[in-house]
Amino acid sequence: MTPKIRMLNTTSTALFLAMGLAFSSATHAAEPAAKPVLTPDQQAGKDIAFSKSEGNCLACHAMAGGTEPGNVGPMLIAMKVRFPDKEALYKILWDPREKFGRGIIMPPFGDHKILTKEQITQVVDYLYTL
């Protein structure tokens, strides 16, 4: 995929996202956008994602609450809306090469044993809160 196409994709994702969120906020208009309290698994996932020696996702991705994020990868936001299939998200973390091709800079966290299955599941749980 050329970077140009990728840019288009991101933009259309964003549009879809805007529509999706606008729609969902119409149906759940009463709910305040309060900060969710994380479950222990989600919290563990967050710790892994933010830790320099483990996930270090912040090195490349902006994530809510993360300081000094890199901008090599796209912002991780509204993950539940954009990845309704949790398994698909898990697969990206396990080995992003399947989706993005061999040239992708993102490390294959599962395939190269950087994180365990349990840890990746926890990170995915956390991503769903974003």
């Binding site: 996202l17 969120l21 906020s25 901008n71 912002m75």
Partner: peptide
């Protein structure tokens, strides 16, 4: 409600670019 969501959309598009 749409304003903040559009903002998010804008940020995502911005980050993506």
């Amino acid at each position: 409600k749409i304003v903040p969501t559009l903002l998010i959309a804008g940020i995502v598009a911005g980050m993506g670019s």
